[in-house]
Design a protein around this nucleic acid. Sequence first.
DNA 1: GCGGCATTTGACCGTTTGGTCAAATTTATA
DNA 2: TATAAATTTGACCAAACGGTCAAATGCCGC
Lengths: 217, 217
Amino acid sequence: MDKPLVKISIRAENQRAIVEAAEAVFAEAGFKGATTAAIAAKAGVPKANLHYYFSTKEDLYRAVVERVLTAWLAAASSFDESDDPREALARYIGAKMDLARSMPLSSRIWATEIMRGAPVIQDFLDTTLAQWVEQRSRIVRRWIADGRVRPIEPKYLFYMIWATTQQYANAAHEMASLENGRPLTDEQFEAAKKQVIETIIAGVAPQTGRRASPSQT
Amino acid sequence: MDKPLVKISIRAENQRAIVEAAEAVFAEAGFKGATTAAIAAKAGVPKANLHYYFSTKEDLYRAVVERVLTAWLAAASSFDESDDPREALARYIGAKMDLARSMPLSSRIWATEIMRGAPVIQDFLDTTLAQWVEQRSRIVRRWIADGRVRPIEPKYLFYMIWATTQQYANAAHEMASLENGRPLTDEQFEAAKKQVIETIIAGVAPQTGRRASPSQT
DNA sequence: GCGGCATTTGACCGTTTGGTCAAATTTATA
DNA sequence: TATAAATTTGACCAAACGGTCAAATGCCGC
């Protein structure tokens, strides 16, 4: 009576536990460095049991990466919540920062996968991501046409956003080392998020500054 | 008679060839994934010969990482070539972008090392890098005090610069996928470099824009 | 409570890998 | 040219690894 709906199938629950353990081990040791024995141990199951659910290490890795992909897409959708450049960018950058902060392991696996040349998610790059970038680039270009963003190549803006937000997962250890070994506090992280958002927004804002209005030359 | 000065010691030349091969293999396969056999093959020497010069794989990895560190420091020094925020940042970002472009393998190894928690360069993080950041942060704070940079935490600015420039090595494959499989041309890369520099400089510039001059409130 | 299916698990195996070694060969020294 | 030191290399080894397998156990509908 305590668990009527909670009664998840044994299969689903075991897979979840294994994938979760795999994520940690892959993130720490890389694909080749991760051993199925270590993953099984972390998940609390015998190695043979792991291979009962995921026949090969690559299968398991793929499951992990697909989980990350879901999170990536969820964060990406926050770009579309507003038509205002400042608001859209702030939301998107904020979502990506939060993703890096709350799922550092996933984020690191994602970065590694990209760096390895995307052996598993090549298809995603060529289809979903390409379309996403294409569509959002069109939005940015409209902003530029409307004079709400200075003339830039949208892709390079996205690269900057991806890199900078990812940094807070990838380089968390480095950042901690520069804070006497202590990881960024929530307050520091929020300050960093704010600064990243403001810097990028100001960085792509139309130049109203040095010269009051653009000359016609 | 043909090689009076060229006659580098056998030792130095072999070490160089091995380290170069190691860099490629480590970058492609990660530390654990790289095999000494593969490195030896790429360097054109028998595996036993590799172990004659580098007794363990870790020794070899350390040699590779130290080579990268040299390049990192060289690029870092370009920050100090000017006292003007715009010029210093432009030079530094440009140097880091060029580093990522010209030494993508090194850059990727560096990124991986950072992501792994810097097992080899921890000492560098705690000493040299910490000092570098401390000193340059002081410079940035002076710029802020002089009203030449808006109030920011210098560290988060450096994180952004490191991440964004590194991106052009780490994610070269992803970028190519978004250009129909073709890597960034030199022209595209130069445009990206320009955009990154301008975006960051505008992003940290004092707000002369929306409101002409800061109020006293 | 029985029959069938899913799950669990210890033992096992072929391969790969980092590293060793001793013998051969080359290079430097005098 | 004699001798020592540095370098080269094929053969070899123990450990670690991904994956298999068959027997045992648990679970569920009827």
